[in-house]
Computed example of a mutant assay.
Amino acid sequence: MSRPSASRLSAHDLTLAYEDRTVVEGLDLEIPDGKVTIVVGPNACGKSTLLRALGRLLKPRRGAVLLDGRELTGFPAKQIGRTIGVLPQSPTPPDGITVADLVARGRQPHQKWWQQWSQADEHAVAEALERTNTAGLADRPVDELSGGQRQRVWIAMALAQDTELLLLDEPTTYLDVAHQVEVLDLVRRLNLERGRTVVAVLHDLNQAIRYADHLVAMKDGRIVAEGAPDEVVTTDMVQEVFGLSSVIIPDPITGGRLVVPGYSWQPAPAEKTHAH
């Protein structure tokens, strides 16, 4: 199956399932080249499942993911590894591996049988450690790190892979708010300075609005809305996708949209008692 596509990476009539449970059905999606696409939606709506399929970690039940107009399943694994970098949710490191060795594994798709390690590999690993502020952790075992440190190391490995397309599933998991912003700023810099196409799944809707060029809102395995955040994010969309009443105001920093949840729960006023 091969067809021309408006973007390098796309999904057509995609149905994804785990055994007998269908998670995504009949989904079509074009990933805009050179942009940051962020997928949002409630838990268990199919966000991570979609990302796994885009990265060839999950085989479609029906339909196809296309890269440059060709089915993803038709590419050699090493070619995919040089083109698409994937950071899955909660990856598990090999026992006892150090930070430097884990990040170096991102270079495997670029290595040739006659040259296992090059100056380009060395440079890519050093830059990835530097960009994620993990160079000081290089000699430490990954399994001794905090959750936040470990997450930054996995991101460093994905950066060291140096791919044109980068897929990130919840890259801000385990990170405090300062490190969340740091990671998302890094994603934005990679996009603007290196021209990387990024697809990320995020939980935080306001972070997604701030960093996305293209926002995809999912519910129950389907796309409810997609497009520029300022066009897509409305009180109706927030209600439909998240079941949340909200007010949308201008973001005081960016001038974009900021979603403020509606009234929080308050106890009912106590009934007045009257003396008889």
Rank of each mutant, 00 (worst) to 15 (best):
I223G: 12
G26S: 14
E19H: 12
L57K: 12
E71H: 02
V86W: 04
D213T: 10
Q108H: 13
E193V: 04
Y174W: 13
S264G: 11
G34Y: 01
A217M: 08
K47N: 01
K272D: 05
E19C: 04
A77K: 12
L16M: 09
E240Q: 15
P141Q: 12
D236G: 05
V232H: 05
V187S: 00
K78D: 15
S10Y: 00
I97Q: 04
A158V: 11
Q119H: 13
R210H: 08
D169T: 08
E164F: 01
T273D: 07
T235Q: 10
Y211C: 05
A212S: 15
V199M: 10
V125M: 03
R61M: 00
A6Q: 15
L165Y: 06
P141N: 07
E30Y: 01
P229T: 01
L14I: 04
V24T: 03
R70W: 07
V233S: 00
G147H: 02
L67D: 02
Q180S: 12
S246V: 10
E30S: 14
G106M: 00
H110Y: 09
Q151Y: 00
D121E: 12
L67F: 12
Y211W: 05
K272L: 10
D95E: 14
R257G: 06
T92G: 02
P91G: 11
V177W: 11
D162M: 01
T163P: 08
R107L: 07
